[in-house]
Design a protein around this nucleic acid. Structure first.
Length: 272
DNA sequence: AGCCAGGCCCATT
DNA sequence: AATGGGCATGGC
């Protein structure tokens, strides 16, 4: 098989460790020093990065879109820099990029993520892939909605999904049966898309925002989780509900909210 | 050992 | 519309 690859020689906005560790993706592994293998739907990419460059191996067209390589993150960071609380976080996570991941994979992954630890989320997802995903040889694909719909909540409970088990069974079925149209989300204005996603069992405001940000590259959303709540209380102070924080933060960062959220999340969770 | 995690559902107000 | 209790699991 031919080995396609992309070389990223400007690392000012590309750090594979930061990209993978900022909580937007759960299917990846470190395979060596600066070496990672990454999976999305039925695809695999490998990345090696040193001081001078990053080399991404795999389908070039897919990799370019997946890593969002045609977007100017220098310009985004420049615009954000002028906004509140951004300077420090941008400095710490300068190599972060928002991936363009698969919407269905994001829906399932972030339902599992609710009130859960990242290492454990990874384990549950890995078991689902190994058991229900297509065998690609060296790895397994993410399961299709059809494959997931074959299983009931007892199955997902046995995989360790806990009280999210019925959410997975019900949501997979809704999508497999066509009661929920994953592609239709793309054409909806953000508020309608949020509302539509929240009609899925197990998807609330925070999970919907993660799906929109990481699965549809909708950046006018601001996922508020426990880490962002910590940041908010430190920076903004005062008591506020998640919904109030979300509204306030979007008021500050507007169309760049999704990017701002990732810099803040990573700065808090990875740093302190 | 006990706290906590990329929160949501549902009943109640 | 807004709040609060309950919730499976296992990493740390």
């Amino acid at each position: 098989m031919e080995e396609e690859y992309i070389i990223v020689d400007d690392l000012s906005s590309f750090d594979i460790r930061q990209i993978l560790d900022c909580g937007q993706i759960f299917r990846y592994a470190k395979t060596g020093e600066g070496e990672y293998v990454v999976h999305s739907r039925d695809r695999q990419l490998t990345v090696r990065q040193d001081k001078e460059k990053a080399v991404i191996c795999g389908d070039k067209e897919f990799a370019r879109r997946f890593f969002d390589l045609d977007r100017d993150y220098g310009a985004i960071k420049e615009r954000l820099h002028a906004l509140p609380f951004m300077a420090e976080s941008i400095g710490y996570g300068a190599g972060i990029r928002i991936l363009n991941n698969d919407p269905f994979e994001m829906i399932i992954s972030f339902i599992i993520s609710a009130n859960n630890h990242i290492p454990r989320i990874k384990g549950i997802i890995e078991r689902l892939c190994n058991d229900l995903g297509k065998d690609m040889g060296a790895y397994h694909a993410f399961p299709t909605a059809q494959a997931m719909a074959q299983k009931g909540e007892e199955y997902y409970l046995a995989q360790g999904a806990g009280y999210r088990a019925p959410y997975l069974a019900c949501t997979a079925r809704a999508i497999a049966e066509g009661a929920f149209d994953v592609d239709a989300v793309r054409d909806m204005p953000t508020p309608a898309a949020q509302k539509y996603l929240c009609s899925l069992l197990g998807v609330g405001p925070k999970v919907a925002d993660c799906i929109l940000l990481f699965g549809y590259h909708r950046t006018d959303v601001f996922p508020v989780d426990t880490w962002i709540k910590k940041v908010y209380r430190e920076k903004l102070g005062g008591e506020a509900s998640g919904a109030q924080m979300r509204k306030k933060l979007i008021g500050i960062y507007g169309e760049l909210s999704g990017y701002a959220q990732q810099y803040l999340f990573f700065g808090k969770r990875d740093n302190k």
